[in-house]
Design a protein around this nucleic acid. Structure first.
Lengths: 195, 195
DNA sequence: GTCTATACCGAGATAGAC
DNA sequence: GTCTATCTCGGTATAGAC
């Protein structure tokens, strides 16, 4: 067999990982246009030509860097009465927790001016957020609209707090966010408004 | 007197206006990086050198294009019991009404990757949104936080509906938006939650 | 006032020596 | 596998002819 994949952190693999990590950092901070191949190379202490050698193009590098897994299926056991709080807590973990990477920041930072990033972001909400909302939405038929409303509040909060860094939103404590935004999400998911 | 300003739509002025209009359109649609001087010139049926001649640089052109006046003082007569609905109705006018230009789209499109645009957007909320919220917030001392929460919902809605074009959010009718988002804003401005 | 031509720069990407 | 050198392209901005 040619299968000698296990246990081979070859130098190539480590270099590749370094490049990818540098790319994720810089794409998250400066966006697709703002982060150049040269920047990524410098940050990984490597030659720019290597970046192209390992990933064929900037687009492909971005595609590799912009993978997002919100791990929402972990919320499988859901309580309809506390879904709002559950969602906002998970949101804070994703954006500020130690485990989750900068995947969402990468997408959101570039989504306004890069159609690929925009499409990926729409995919995230269609494939990851929507199913969770649909599982508990009040008539499930409204799942699309409810998931859309949830997304509008959560993306807006992320924009203001992590990208735009609007001072009063940055200043909010986790408890304040949970207490204020939680009820909003709760109503969007299982509320009886609607027309 | 050298004052012959009135009644002189000289060819220069018209050209200047054409350039500015083209710039506002393209900056709103493609963002700062995505809209080049050449694009703007082509769209205004003019030579690229003229763009630089009229506005000294791309940065200055962007600064001229990115002026925003939400005209919120027009809401001076405010009813605390309907402030949420008032705000969301004004939001829809700003983004979809015939009068308002693409100013907000210009800023929001570029704010994630352009520090100047980000600063201008923070200014808009500090100088235009915050005062309105402060005028009716419930303890007025919480005005900053309340205005921040309002901004998070409104910017998120704008992102999803007009920039990201998330299908379920695009599909929302004006009435659905008013009925669903209005109560959220109402609670953010005069609600009694908080910690 | 307007446009042609171009300078200059930094981007992404490639060829080929080592 | 790695790096030096370079190509090409498109960006902003400028010089100078008309």
């Amino acid at each position: 067999m040619i299968e000698n994949q296990p246990k081979k952190p070859s130098k190539s693999d480590r270099t590749r990982a370094q490049i990818l990590e540098a790319a994720r950092l810089l794409f998250a901070e400066h966006g697709y246009d703002g982060a150049s191949i040269r920047d990524v190379a410098a940050h990984a202490s490597i030659d720019p030509a290597m970046v192209i050698r390992y990933f064929r193009s900037k687009d492909e590098l971005f595609a590799r860097a912009a993978v997002v897994d919100l791990q929402l299926p972990a919320l499988r056991v859901i309580d309809r009465t506390t879904i709002g709080e559950t969602l906002i807590r998970r949101f804070l973990e994703i954006w500020e927790g130690p485990a989750s990477g900068p995947g969402m920041a990468i997408l959101l930072r570039s989504a306004t001016s890069n159609e690929f990033a925009a499409e990926k972001l729409r995919d995230v909400f269609g494939n990851q957020v929507r199913p969770v909302v649909a599982a508990v939405a009040d008539p499930a038929a409204d799942a699309d609209r409810r998931a859309g409303l949830v997304s509008s509040q959560l993306l807006g909060l992320a924009m203001c707090r992590y990208l735009l860094r609007l001072p009063p939103v940055v200043a909010l404590s986790h408890d304040e966010i949970i207490q204020n935004v939680g009820p909003t999400l709760q109503r969007y998911v299982v509320g009886e408004d609607v027309s």
